[in-house]
């Protein structure tokens, strides 16, 4: 109970600070919009290669861009922890009965919340661009949940790295290091059957791809709910593992004080 209450208090603080500068949410959306609109148009004929499950490339791309955006957002989420460490906000909380897990969890929840809001905006823009979600409202919900889970899985990693290194420069390096490789080793931009064999294998173990597969499954016809449930369950399990890892690194941070 204390954990939930404290997570709520701390997330409220972060959400409030975020809403105070809503310009950030918009600025952060510029990149996914470029992918969706420009890249989507540039490669519109790629579906002729076959295996895309639709002739509309933007319909194929849109759910994946939602997940990609959630993934990129997550890799940066540790920056906010580093800012709190630098400003000694964390230390102030540590001298109170504040739940330790809530301190870490609130960072992940804030990150996931941002991803959910952005997912909704990207989906609305996609709708305007003619993308139709085959499974309707339930499908929208699945896409947003996929975005939240991909985000929290990687936000946990980002928090752990932030707590281990406590340096912004290292965070930037790590975000760049894992960002593009995980994007290209997934079916975000291309049908699975068009990928080289070794990349298909690699994608199977890529959590970003799990999210993309779940989100795309509800957009295109012939939805397999079992597949959706499997990938979402995998992401949920991974989120729990990375959150636990982040909490462990938080304990080692406390010991270093």
């Amino acid at each position: 109970m204390t954990l939930l209450r404290h997570t709520w208090f701390m997330t409220t603080r972060q959400a409030r600070n975020l809403m105070r500068e809503p310009i950030w949410i918009v600025l952060l959306l510029v990149q996914p919009m470029v992918w969706l609109v420009l890249y989507g148009q540039l490669f519109r004929n790629v579906t002729r290669l076959g295996g895309f499950g639709t002739s509309s490339y933007i319909t194929f791309l849109a759910p994946a861009i939602v997940v990609m955006n959630a993934f990129f957002g997550a890799t940066w989420s540790g920056m906010s922890m580093i800012a709190d460490l630098d400003h000694k906000v964390i230390e102030r909380f540590l001298a109170t009965p504040a739940s330790r897990f809530a301190i870490v969890l609130s960072q992940i929840v804030r990150s996931a919340l941002t991803a959910a809001i952005q997912a909704l905006i990207i989906l609305l823009v996609s709708l305007a661009l003619g993308v139709r979600v085959h499974t309707g409202v339930l499908g929208w919900l699945v896409i947003i949940i996929a975005a939240i889970l991909v985000n929290s899985a990687f936000a946990g990693v980002s928090q752990a790295i932030a707590l281990l290194t406590r340096r912004e420069a290292t965070m930037i390096a790590v975000a760049n290091f894992i960002g593009l490789p995980l994007l290209f080793l997934s079916t975000t931009m291309i049908a699975r059957s068009q990928m080289p064999g070794w990349m298909q294998t690699a994608a199977r173990f890529n959590p970003v791809d799990w999210g993309v597969r779940a989100a795309r499954e509800v957009v295109l016809p012939g939805t397999s709910w079992g597949t959706v449930a499997l990938y979402l369950a995998l992401l949920l399990a991974l989120s729990a593992v990375t959150a636990a890892w982040a909490t462990t690194t938080f304990r080692s941070y406390q010991r270093s004080l």
């Binding site: 603080r13 600070n17 400003h87 964390i90 230390e91 102030r92």
Partner: peptide, 8 residues
């Protein structure tokens, strides 16, 4: 070092 949340 002050531990206040500067953005609140």
């Amino acid at each position: 070092d002050s531990g206040v949340d500067q953005y609140g």
